[in-house]
Computed example of a mutant assay.
Amino acid sequence: MTTSKTHSTTFTAWPTGFYQADLTAMDGPGLGLESVQEMNSQLRTLILEAEAKQPEYRFGVIGAQKSSLDILRWEHPAVDWLRERILDAIRDLTLDSLSAKEDLAARVFEKSAIRAEGWAVVYHEGGSHRQHTHHDSVFSGTYYIETRGVGPDAGHLQLLDPRPAAVARHGSPGVYAVQPRPGLLVGFPSWLPHSVKATLHDGGTRICIAWNAAFDTSEALS
């Protein structure tokens, strides 16, 4: 009589990559506390000047105002600096998501045209953003410039587990919270639901730049 042995394995089927970089603590040109503080000061001035002149965009937000979607095309050294930092995030997220296919990851990033857009969001006292996802993009993220009004349980970016059954069955805490601080850059898949918890009512403004990125992979995949 022959007895067959059953083999079992445990694996993760749906991993979700997440990028987080504290630019104030990093070494290199344009990095470190003093460089980041200078860039943030310039970005803050640009954003608040634009807020006073542009039409109000309030889709999805409460007690906050969005800029137009062309901030990454503004001609200014601080915007050029931020564009490079976002490119670093896109590169790392691409390599992570295609880690099992390193050759493909290299071709996608090196030969594809990257389409990116960005917009500022100024949260006033008590401001928040409803749960949402981003369309027509692969990766999305946020760069934090000013984080007044953020506290231990206020003003956080909330990344939501997209598996409702896992949350309902207590197989997941449901929320991964990121406490913003100036100089922090985060990135994640655009399909991941997320929201912003209300800021403190007496805490001042919270200013960030949100971004989307997509690829034209026609040459990379040929």
Rank of each mutant, 00 (worst) to 15 (best):
T3L: 14
K5R: 08
S8G: 11
T12M: 12
F18A: 14
Q20N: 02
L23V: 06
T24C: 13
P29G: 00
L31K: 07
E34L: 13
Q37D: 07
M39I: 09
L46V: 12
A52Y: 00
Q54C: 06
F59T: 10
V61K: 04
I62A: 11
K66Y: 02
I71F: 15
P77S: 00
A78I: 07
A78W: 00
V79H: 03
D92V: 01
L93R: 04
L95C: 04
L98Q: 11
K101D: 06
K101F: 11
A106F: 15
E110I: 04
E110P: 00
K111P: 02
I114K: 12
I114P: 11
R115Y: 11
W119I: 03
Y123H: 13
H124Y: 14
H129L: 08
H134N: 09
V138A: 10
F139G: 03
Y144S: 12
T147V: 13
G149T: 08
V150I: 14
G151V: 03
G151H: 03
A154E: 13
Q158E: 06
L159H: 01
A165S: 08
G171T: 01
Y176E: 06
A177V: 03
P180M: 04
L184Q: 05
G187C: 04
F188I: 05
S190A: 15
K197I: 06
H201G: 14
G204P: 08
A214F: 05
F215A: 03
E219K: 14
